[in-house]
Design a protein around this nucleic acid. Structure first.
Length: 594
RNA sequence: GGUCCAGUAGCUCAGCUGGAUAGAGCAGCGGUUUUCUAAACCGCAGGCCACAGGUUCGAGCCCUGUCUGGAUCACCA
């Protein structure tokens, strides 16, 4: 049984016995004892001195005695000010270690396939340009959150919402018609999403030229932007698309197919996947239907120009447009449709959206509008908001060329991994394909850990001038620790070194490792509840660090005491398993050798 | 202007429901290899936790105000 719960129970028991006062167990704070002090768990008695009406030290000593006498696994205690430090018997830790060795899925729960799923949307790209660093953060967060939820026993469905329609797509299409000379990914070997993105940039160039000309001829900037022939052409193209004009529609299908082929390559490199992909071109009409029905039911209202609005003033917000005066849909309308469809498809327990914090307001409004429309499932929606990735000179902007392209970044870091690994000369015994796999694993670990170790809620800074580190608090550090553990295990087995079931007494350092094992299930749980890959990432790092220290303090292979060495090997195996589990929650592969 | 988020070492970041002397990595300086793999380890240096009040046994964390930065408040997505 969980020691912290036992301590809390006994704490309350002791209090009523000694001071005839019943206390709320939730107010008892138990933490791991800090390394500088002796003990395993620390109970803070300060909050209770007023009930006991005695000095903190006195109270702590009385409770300490009570614990030693009434909890068999408590070995001893010491008191420093109001902190009661409890030392737990080795046998308790050993039992936990044994249990963990037996169960290879220690800390994980099996997903219940029959339960209402948690639908998690992430990635959500536009089909007019390639993925960039911002998408990488989104994809890695979304995927690892899904993994973490699944590890905590949830039935998780990963979905993607592709924004495949709208004026921005038409811009790429139009520019390709004008400048493309019929080039395709097949003819010029360019990745499809990059090719389409190139023409999106081209459109913007042409547009700016036309705007400048119109302004030179006396138009205001606003007029110029509205009247430039090329934007009018694009708008016409969008109308043709909505009317399913065959030529436009065919081109749209063709170019989108190029983009999807490109996205697939990038997703594969990132190691993320989806159970289902939604396309806005297939959901926006449903959104319009829902809004129109809301209008008929009198929940929404119409302005004189025919546009349809939701009034959220009673909720402290303003009025929100849902259908334009020309009857076309806006972003919010599409999201209403998509949410409705998701409810129909899955009847989920929750709908999670991994979307940047710049859309906090949007999701607040979305929920309120759905409530207003009378959908009781509106409360299922949770926006998992994450901070933007910023460059040293500010936010990334596609059209200004200040983006860090996802493919470039991945290829660059894998190349770095190759250079550093080759220099180390440790992999001379690997075949070329094995070596390539290793470069990829190490490079991606560096990238993924770099992204995931930062608190998702916070914005983060990325400096392209500084390459991503492979030393210190990084993915490769954790992988390296794991690889060394594997090496020990191999050599130990080859030498038939020790027996795996034999365990002896443990010292302080070993107990700190065991404590991590003890904490492992709760770490997964906490991370799942907080949706926080950062916790898992920092945890994997702490564990690897703890292992490195342990290794350097104990020269395992040369231990004269055979049984003691065997125990340590047990510990290594456990540590390795846990590192591997934490890394897999983050979608990071761990190689056996580095 | 309203709303929301943030401000911790030179840099990038941790810091759990308020607890013991605020921690890592990078960068800087100095060390460590007859032991499994130095992508490691150890040491030194580096802090008015933006600022000012408040709450209490106790505040980086909670409250109020100020300053700074960011996001958002579109018939853009």
């Amino acid at each position: 049984m969980n020691m912290e719960i036992i301590i809390k129970d006994k704490f309350a028991e002791a209090f009523s016995e000694l001071y005839s006062h019943s206390i709320d167990k939730n107010t008892i704070a138990i933490q791991e004892t800090r390394k500088e002090f002796e003990g395993d768990f620390t109970v803070n008695v300060f909050p209770f001195v007023r009930f006991a009406k005695s000095k903190p030290e006195e109270l702590a000593n009385k409770l300490g005695e009570y614990f030693v006498n009434n909890i068999p696994d408590v070995k001893s205690f010491n008191v420093i000010k109001g902190f009661l430090n409890l030392s737990i018997k080795s046998s308790y830790w050993l039992d936990i270690a044994k249990e963990a060795t037996k169960n290879s899925n220690y800390g994980f729960e099996l997903a219940n396939e029959n339960a209402a799923p948690i639908v998690i949307e992430y990635s959500s790209p536009n089909t007019n340009k390639p993925l960039h660093l911002g998408h990488i953060r989104n994809n890695l967060l979304g995927f690892s959150i899904a993994e973490i939820l699944e590890a905590s026993g949830k039935n998780v469905k990963k979905v993607n919402l592709v924004n495949d329609r709208g004026i921005h797509i038409c811009k790429s299409m139009l520019a390709w018609q004008k400048h493309g000379n019929g080039e395709t990914p097949e003819t010029n070997g360019e990745k499809g999403d990059h090719l389409v993105g190139k023409y999106y940039v081209q459109f913007d160039k042409d547009y700016k030229v036309e705007i400048a000309e119109l302004i030179a001829n006396g138009k205001t900037e606003k007029e110029a932007k509205a009247e430039a022939p090329i934007i009018k052409e694009a708008q016409q193209m969008l109308r043709d698309w909505e009317a399913k004009e065959p030529q436009v529609y065919k081109l749209w299908e063709t170019m989108n197919a190029w983009v999807y082929a490109g996205f697939d390559v990038t997703y594969k490199k990132l190691g993320v996947d989806f159970d289902k992909i939604y396309y806005e071109s297939e959901t926006y009409l449903l959104g319009k239907d829902v809004v129109n029905k809301g209008f008929k039911d009198g929940v929404l209202y119409q302005k004189e120009d025919g546009s349809i609005w939701a009034n959220l003033e009673d909720k402290g917000l303003d009025q929100k447009l849902l259908l334009r005066s020309d009857g076309t849909s806006v972003y919010m309308t599409q999201d209403i449709g998509t949410a409705q469809l998701r409810e129909i498809d899955y009847s989920p327990e929750k709908m999670l959206y991994v979307v940047g914090n710049e859309q906090n307001y949007h999701f607040e409004v979305l929920t309120l509008v759905l409530e207003k429309l009378g959908f009781d499932w509106a409360s299922k929606i949770h926006h998992i908001s994450y901070g933007m990735v910023e460059l040293p000179h500010g936010k990334m902007k596609s059209r200004e060329g200040t983006v860090v392209d996802a493919d470039d970044l991945i290829d660059g870091i894998v190349a770095d991994a190759k250079r550093l690994t080759s220099e180390s000369g440790k992999i001379d015994n690997l075949s070329d394909s094995e070596a390539d796999k290793l470069y990829y694993q190490v490079g991606m670990a560096a990238l993924k850990f770099f992204i995931l170790k930062v608190d998702p809620k916070r914005k983060m800074l990325f400096n392209p001038e500084e390459s991503i580190d492979f030393n210190g608090n990084t993915g490769p550090f954790v992988q390296y620790a794991y690889a060394r553990i594997q090496s020990i295990m191999r050599k130990a087995k080859d030498a038939e070194f020790g027996s795996w079931d034999n365990t002896l007494s443990i010292n302080e350092k070993e107990s700190s490792l065991l404590r991590i094992i003890y904490n492992y299930p709760s770490v997964v749980q906490v991370a799942a509840n907080n949706y926080s890959p950062a916790i898992i990432a920092s945890y994997a790092y702490d564990l690897a660090k703890e292992y490195n220290q342990f290794y350097h303090d104990n020269h395992i292979m040369n231990e004269s005491d055979r049984d003691k060495a065997a125990f340590r090997l047990d510990l290594s195996k456990l540590t390795g398993d846990i590192i591997k589990s934490s890394m897999s929650l983050l979608g990071i592969e761990v190689p056996n050798q580095m």
